[in-house]
Design a protein around this nucleic acid. Sequence first.
DNA 1: CAATTTGGTCTGGTGACAAGACTGAATTGC
DNA 2: GCAATTCAGTCTTGTCACCAGACCAAATTG
Lengths: 178, 178
Amino acid sequence: MGVALGTGYSQQNCNLARALEVVGERWTMLVLRDCFYGVRRFSDLLAHLDISRAVLTDRLTALVEARVLVRVADGGHPEYELTEAGKALWPSIYALSQWGEQYVSPGSYPGRVFSHAECGTQLDRFGRCPDCGTIPGPEDLVVAPGPGEAVRPRSDAVAVALRAPRRMLTPLRPRSDA
Amino acid sequence: MGVALGTGYSQQNCNLARALEVVGERWTMLVLRDCFYGVRRFSDLLAHLDISRAVLTDRLTALVEARVLVRVADGGHPEYELTEAGKALWPSIYALSQWGEQYVSPGSYPGRVFSHAECGTQLDRFGRCPDCGTIPGPEDLVVAPGPGEAVRPRSDAVAVALRAPRRMLTPLRPRSDA
DNA sequence: CAATTTGGTCTGGTGACAAGACTGAATTGC
DNA sequence: GCAATTCAGTCTTGTCACCAGACCAAATTG
């Protein structure tokens, strides 16, 4: 209780409202973005997002309950991984990022560029690979820092790792395999 | 003051965070969805969304300030229209709706289907017209109710108008042209 | 011109969030 | 093996946003 409440758009017979009940809360999208970048640990999310511990706990719990993430903890520290439903959110996140880049902070925040790993071509603003004509899923993408510099670069582990091109969805830290 | 605050993801040098500062607040996306459907009046949004008056006022003010909507009021009652930046949000809204339909309420909420007005073909989940191979903008789309019935159909003017296929972005009510 | 609708503003009560102290389990250092 | 540290949370307190509903002036309708 208290998890999915406060987000209820109860009277809306609408798929957008249903989606927003799951991913529309503050911070949720940013948590998921980090998951796509390979972040899996509570502490990494905490350090990268400047989010309150209680709220991060709440969001992770809700996302696990909604089957967007799975909590994996065999003995060691728990890790949070995207499920299929979670990975399917990539187009939404990409579309919002592109809009932010074009209309909110044009030019100021170079952000990151995404390329089709197979052919190295940079995606267009709809997420299409202009070379292949397809819309690659997140597992087929490489993220790299865009041109230009961040205004005030961060120093947390996640920010540092993202200064080099990375295959998306690959864990930021090596698995603590038994 | 008090408008854009509370949504600040200040430390995030990230386009997604920038986008969410503008459209990430509760209700904002649903307001915009209605704008795409042709809703332009305060009272229609109020009736269709079951939102508090104060919050609706706040959201509209913020969206106008962010240049996502324009407030047009020549004498008569004001109307809110999507700007170019606002229309550019369509891919984000479409992506979220599709995700909601597939992963949150599969089958339960038939929602609406979107077709390319030019050729009548229904869009795929990435917003592509399978016939033309393009990704039509919202001005080239027709919304129609999906198959199946809403659980508890609404009776407000907007819900009623949306029971028939409609060209998107066309005003719900005839303009009170001078 | 009276009644109603429209587009708001203004209250009060409730719930969400931020900041930070605190804790027990896991991990690391030696 | 044991101490120190890190990790993944929980708990508390204050602030802020949101909801429900009363209220109000301007526009519109009858």
